[in-house]
Amino acid sequence: MSAIYVVKEIYIYPIKSLAGISYQNAFAEEMGFEHDRRWMLVDGDNKFITQREHRILSQFYPQISDGKINITFQDYKHEFSIEEHLDNPIGVNVWDDKSEVVEVNKLTSNWFSEQLGFECKLVKIIKSGDRKHESSQLKETFNVSLADGYPYLMIGSESLDFLNEKLADKITILRFRPNIVISTQTPHEEDDFTTFKIGEVQFKNVKPCGRCIMVNNDPENGKLKKEPLKTLSKYRVVNNSVLFGTNIVSLNSGVISVGNTIVF
């Protein structure tokens, strides 16, 4: 490929389905960026909860500082240590994948329960191998975090620009919760990348990402809209799945940074 592709934005989402954090640099691991979706909320039956059912989760804003995760929700704040957790393992499912997690602490679970109005727990995946995800496309099994499927989601800038040309109300890339945003030349060309290197890290493309109703949830206010799925369904449907962005995996650990050029 003769075009030059550059990393424009990097995001991590420490707690599954809560707001993300923008970074200039991030440490890539097999499971995803360090601290990315290592935590998630589960209900009283230990079923994971997301913005699909609880759009208000988009209004919880995490920050990481001094070894702690600080959560802001409206006028309320809470913090807990990145390292802390209880000892008793809990078996959960993330879609079809079984995972072993542990509760962070009772105080944090009670805080989330109070804000959301129902019983829930904040749990954490401890180590690589506690959840495995099998790729039917690659016929490989990956150690993953608590993300829906794959450790990384990459989106090209032209994919969003092309979509926004068709929308009356423009949206930002935050609707799609990417980990890596790159500058591109044409819409959706990231779907066709194979293996490539960013900074210190070699990545491999798995498959384009099928999108769900969550992308219609406006992260600015947590309100459900008709777009962008309505428009995307007119030109991005393959095998009954609306595609936007592509799922990738890392082949080694290392740092990537905003401004890095992609090397093929």
Rank of each mutant, 00 (worst) to 15 (best):
A3E: 10
V237W: 07
L86C: 12
T246Q: 10
K77S: 10
S159G: 02
I82T: 12
V255M: 11
E119N: 15
T108E: 08
G44D: 14
S22L: 09
T261F: 06
R38Y: 13
I126K: 14
I71T: 05
K8N: 10
S58I: 07
L251V: 03
I182D: 01
L86G: 10
F60H: 06
E84S: 13
V249D: 04
I180A: 05
S136I: 11
N247H: 06
G117S: 08
V42E: 06
I4D: 12
I12C: 01
K132L: 15
I182P: 03
R211T: 04
K234A: 11
K124E: 02
N70Y: 13
P187R: 02
N260H: 13
Y5C: 05
N240E: 15
V94S: 00
I182M: 00
F142V: 04
I171A: 01
E34D: 09
D218H: 03
S241D: 12
D191N: 15
W39L: 09
N260S: 13
E29M: 09
L122G: 06
D36H: 02
T195A: 11
P208G: 09
P208A: 12
K8I: 07
I155H: 08
T261E: 12
K68N: 14
T246I: 11
F27I: 07
A147R: 03
E79S: 15
E114I: 00
N88E: 15
G32P: 01
D148W: 00
K127R: 09
F73M: 01
G67H: 09
N25G: 04
N110K: 15
S233K: 15
Q63A: 13
I213V: 14
N93H: 14
T195Y: 09
V123F: 12
V201F: 04
G259R: 10
K68M: 11
Q59D: 07
V7P: 14
W95D: 07
N252G: 01
D66S: 14
R38H: 11
E34Q: 12
V255E: 10
I180M: 07
M214V: 11
C212H: 06
K207M: 12
P187G: 01
K16F: 06
V101M: 11
P228E: 12
D75A: 10
V123M: 12
E103Y: 09
G254I: 04
V181F: 00
L18I: 14
Q51P: 06
A147W: 02
V215H: 07
G254P: 07
Y235G: 06
L229T: 15
V201M: 08
I125D: 11
L138M: 14
A28P: 04
W111H: 06
S113E: 09
Q202G: 02
S65Y: 03
